[in-house]
Design a binder for these strands. Structure first.
Lengths: 228, 228
DNA sequence: ACACTTTGTGTTGTGGTTACACAAAGTAGA
DNA sequence: TCTACTTTGTGTAACCACAACACAAAGTGT
């Protein structure tokens, strides 16, 4: 058996769709390229996969060095392989998506970028490479995943109110959900636990504070969204 | 802007989980390696991605040259990146799964393999590399996909009876489904069309023959499998 | 004390699913 | 040809989950 040396291989990169949620707005983290190709254009953060690192390792490297983030939810999305997707030559990209609470971090541009910014998913600029396509798939994946897996909490604070969770779902799914039916579904599924404490402050009646139920039974959870 | 030449990249391969269904048995196509590593061990068919080809192209190359197959359903599954997954060196594998009607092809071993054989998913041999893991994920994906997407027909003949379709679902999902309720669900979803013809032959009452409904509305279809 | 907002809880009607029964169509054997 | 048996097609009743509601409780400000 001989190790492979001989063949030339496509470049291998990881690209990240980092979702953040704040003030009823779902946003994506983009970075402005300093160099060609797509100089001064917004793109998804990413990096080439080193010979001795896993995809997840590459993801963390990007998150830490380029974005100053740490310990976030990551999931592999899809691998993109169009021949012409990178003008510099053949390059394959393994896309991941991340869910982040933007409050926990303040993003700053690394050396490679002019700027790093959160963009509401409703107001995206033109993206370089095939990153629009990658983003679209990530958005869809998030929409379907939130219906059957407890990932929404990654976007919120540890403690949150039912209304906050409810608005998050409406924002991501882009539909209206009956407040009271939503509450029952979430509670029945045992996704969350009432902490007994209440949010004190500005508004009217003080709402209960919940937290994610870590010892979650495999109870199948499915939100049936009516197509009104 | 300069083209990238300098960096060394991991090897990039495609591996295929080819599912076939016949006589109430779901099988996977495996091939017996002629060379190290994993000489004389069963593995998933695969090939290295050439510089100028897409993943799908690589898939078709494998299907045609190694297995003598053509025009089959293909879907990207996941990309596997464990550092030590190939003893020859760093190699990333993009896994695809294929759905095939085994009746349409007779598989023969290509030059690279000792043998090619269908194995019932219930009686798999030991697999080389991390192919057991890839297979498991493919199996799960098939199970969930069949519940909301019309992929099952890829495994059957053009014309089929309701009982055949019903048994296929039970086989893949590994649960019992009420015959009559299954019929109604499938028909309501307009997945299939009654051809008006009947299957003549050996048995008792001659069953209606159906075919897949090609002009299928986006009608959401979801089989709720009870967890008995 | 009152109007108003937000939050927590309960109820009712309906549509879809499950769990059945039964008739129709064919085969095989006496 | 009559009967027993198998498979296939169709219908129905009970039930459950969901959607669409009303209403009470807990705050705020005037």
């Amino acid at each position: 058996m001989k190790a492979f040396q001989s063949y030339k291989n496509p470049s291998l990169a990881v690209d990240l769709v980092v979702f953040g949620y704040h003030n009823n707005i779902l946003s994506v983290l983009l970075l402005n390229r300093k160099e060609e190709p797509f100089k001064d254009t917004w793109v998804l953060p990413g990096a080439f996969v080193q010979m001795e690192e896993t995809f997840l390792h590459t993801c963390c490297r990007v998150l830490q060095t380029k974005l100053g983030m740490d310990n976030v939810y990551l999931e592999q999305l899809y691998s993109f392989d169009a021949i012409e997707r990178d003008p510099r030559g053949r390059a394959v990209s393994v896309a991941y998506f991340a869910l982040v609470n933007p409050q926990k971090f303040t993003v700053t541009a690394g050396q490679m970028a002019n700027d790093v910014k959160w963009f509401p998913v409703k107001k995206l600029p033109v993206l370089g490479f095939d990153h629009k396509e990658i983003f679209k798939m990530a958005r869809q994946r998030l929409q379907s995943k939130i219906l059957y897996a407890p990932v929404s909490f990654e976007l919120l604070d540890d403690l949150f109110t039912m209304t906050e969770l409810h608005e998050l779902y409406e924002c991501i799914l882009e539909v209206e959900l009956d407040r009271r039916n939503f509450r029952r579904k979430i509670l029945d599924a045992e996704y969350i636990v009432n902490t007994g404490t209440k949010r004190e402050g500005l508004q009217n009646r003080h709402p209960d504070l919940y937290r994610f139920n870590r010892k979650l039974s495999k109870h199948h959870f499915h939100l049936n969204i009516a197509t009104n």
